[in-house]
Design a binder for these strands. Sequence first.
DNA 1: AATATCGACAACCGCCTATAT
DNA 2: AATATAGGCGGTTGTCGATAT
Length: 250
Amino acid sequence: MGRQPCCDKLGVKKGPWTAEEDKKLINFILTNGQCCWRAVPKLAGLRRCGKSCRLRWTNYLRPDLKRGLLTEAEEQLVIDLHARLGNRWSKIAARLPGRTDNEIKNHWNTHIKKKLLKMGIDPVTHEPLHKETKKSESDTADNFPVHQQELPQANNTEVTPNPDENSSSPSDHNSSSDESNLYENDPLISCLFRDDDPSDQIQVPWDFPSENFDTFWDENCSWLLDCQDFGIHDFGFDSFNDVEMSNLMN
DNA sequence: AATATCGACAACCGCCTATAT
DNA sequence: AATATAGGCGGTTGTCGATAT
């Protein structure tokens, strides 16, 4: 049984989103909330795949997104987490509020990788490059990075890490069942695998003026239609969190 | 000025798991 | 239990602006 396409490919628009499409998507989600992405394009009047809508929203339009380059601190955290988790960008992103997995993945591939190479560090293993040849001979057990080897107990105990654990292969990203055990002694990692997703604690009020959206848009964001490819922060939504939004809603 | 190349990042694709029927 | 579907993930590709030739 082959998996069916997520949407009818015919007549589905691809490529960069226009400001007009963004507006439609924002308007729809503010009015109806996030549910059933498959139905979103039709209901929102978009000739897009539901998946594409979800991606656009989560990676670009969500009001809690930060924009701009990662800070030094964020970058260091990404490096540290990558050393422990491999290419599990969603897990990494979960620890960086306002950042998306896609953004971090891109930043890794375009900036951090090069930075590490320049510093003589292998971006995959996080080992010094000159040790690589020697290491590759003896390194059967899974390319565990130096960070993990240095971790107390959790990763050096009898608990043999799953070889896939750090393989950054596509198949590993859902192998979470034993992860909490594996890392239970590492506070940083263990919290990543808690059931209570930390991002839940960062509840961003999605309090947009759903009822008066058109007015709101016209007054605040209509200039956007002259532009393209700006995030919602560029739209001026930043200020519409707590206080201002509750005022607008009341 | 025109063209080629490169870098950054937005978007897509295909696979996976979870869930509903 | 089998099948269908939605949503999520990571890898890859496409697009576009900047820079070099």
